[in-house]
Design a protein around this nucleic acid. Structure first.
Length: 389
DNA sequence: TCTGGGGTCCTAGGACCC
DNA sequence: TCTGGGGTCCTAGGACCC
């Protein structure tokens, strides 16, 4: 029996590290990966972090903080392929791998200790393989539960391993800031602070009922577990036929805020096409269409409509989104962003479209599939609605 | 020139049904 | 003439995570 079977493996500054493999000349310089214009930082290397640059920082502030920073464009195809290789390395160690994102995963190594040695040894083995094969470093947290392992990997960064044995859990957790807990963001931290709860230990020693009155039943119970390190240790391996997504969506920030209906409706068409294409590729359809609008002042609203039948047809989704937009009745309100999301996804095979006599919709579904075939052959740029050309 | 884009989950109220 | 609870679906908003 191993006491600490859960590993949390987290790549160090993943996007930046991968991008720097192609540019070894830049390793000693501050480098961030991010979009241009109104984007944010996706990853900052450790040199850049010394200037206060970090993930999610607006690019407009990046150059002010560090005028000589090197900005690299994200190359998602490469990130995805490096990630896939890393996940393969994990699965060679244990089949129980729960991927969190491209650059992070939980591993249950309970069944691997006999073959590969104790969890720490497995952690070092993984780090060495990933370094040799991918040329990037990672950090590993080792503990009995998911959240403690994750907090441990954060402590291990960069390029290290931290083990928290069961006997050390509370002395590890309790001095931490409440904001370190999973699920505690800016708002919840401020709320807890108003109750005088600053550290994880403060939360741990607050009666459950009091905690629940402050942050709600669900989060209260959750935080109580996290504060005592009694959260889950069972992983949900996402290999093979995994659960389908519950929703798919796309949104886009305009280069400049706009109140031009024509521009907005055209963008909704592009987004609807993008979402519908991904739905068809995944073999799902959905009934609830949600429009999202973000105004120039950064406030956002959503409007949704549930239809009687699920669809994966671009025209259907676009029409629903446009109706929701028109129903807002905006008068010269400048929009920063629009988004389209489809929820309540079900496998397409379970949807039987009622064929109404004289129905024209069928033609649109056919047209979509023709577009899909052409896109697969010639690329996304080749086939677009006339209004997007 | 502040603040991306992909998601998940929770809350809460109202409708409607039993 | 009154009043109850539970369950599900829909909508809107919000917090959070990577």
């Amino acid at each position: 029996m191993t006491e600490t079977p859960i590993l949390h493996v987290d790549m160090d500054a993943f996007y930046a590290s991968v991008a720097l493999r192609e540019r070894p000349d830049l390793v000693d310089q501050p480098v961030v990966v991010g979009g241009s214009g109104r984007g944010v930082v996706l990853a900052a290397n450790y040199v850049a972090r010394r200037y206060g640059l970090c993930s999610a920082l607006p690019m407009t502030r990046v150059r002010r903080l560090c005028p000589h920073v090197v900005v690299l464009e994200p190359d998602y195809a490469t990130f995805t392929s490096v990630s896939a290789s890393v996940m393969e390395t994990f699965r060679a160690v244990t089949p129980i791998v729960e991927a969190v994102s491209l650059d992070e995963a939980f591993l249950d190594v309970r069944g691997s200790v006999r073959r590969l040695g104790p969890p720490t040894q497995i952690a070092e083995r993984l780090r060495s393989i990933i370094h040799d094969e991918q040329g990037i470093t990672c950090s590993v947290g080792v503990a009995a539960t998911v959240s403690v392992a994750k907090l441990a990997s954060r402590r291990a960064k960069p390029d290290g391993v931290v083990v928290v044995p069961p006997g050390a859990v509370t002395s590890f957790l309790h001095p931490l800031d409440v904001g370190e807990l999973y699920g505690v963001g800016e708002k919840t931290q401020a709320l807890l602070q108003r109750f005088g709860l600053l550290t994880v230990g403060d939360v741990a020693h607050t009666p459950l009922r009091t905690l629940q009155r402050a942050v709600g039943d669900h989060l209260g119970r959750e935080l109580h577990h996290l504060a005592w390190g009694t959260d889950r240790s069972d992983l949900a391996p996402r290999v093979g036929p995994h659960e389908p997504e519950r929703s798919m969506g796309a949104d886009e920030t305009f280069v400049r805020d706009t109140d031009d209906r024509e521009v907005i409706v055209r963008e909704l068409l592009r987004l609807a096409g993008k979402v519908a294409g991904r739905m068809r590729a995944a073999g799902v359809a959905g009934r609830t269409i949600t429009l999202k609008v973000r105004f120039a002042d950064f406030t956002a609203i959503t409007r949704s409509r549930t239809m009687s039948e699920a669809t994966d047809v671009t025209v259907d989704i676009h029409r629903a989104a446009t109706r929701l937009y028109d129903a807002l009745g905006l008068q010269r309100a400048r929009l920063r962003l629009v988004g389209v999301r489809v929820e309540g996804l079900v496998p397409r095979a379970t949807v039987h479209r009622q064929l109404v006599l004289g129905e024209t919709e069928h033609g649109w579904a056919e047209a979509d599939r023709a577009v899909d075939r052409a896109t697969r052959r010639f690329g996304a740029a080749a086939v677009r609605p006339a209004s997007l050309v």
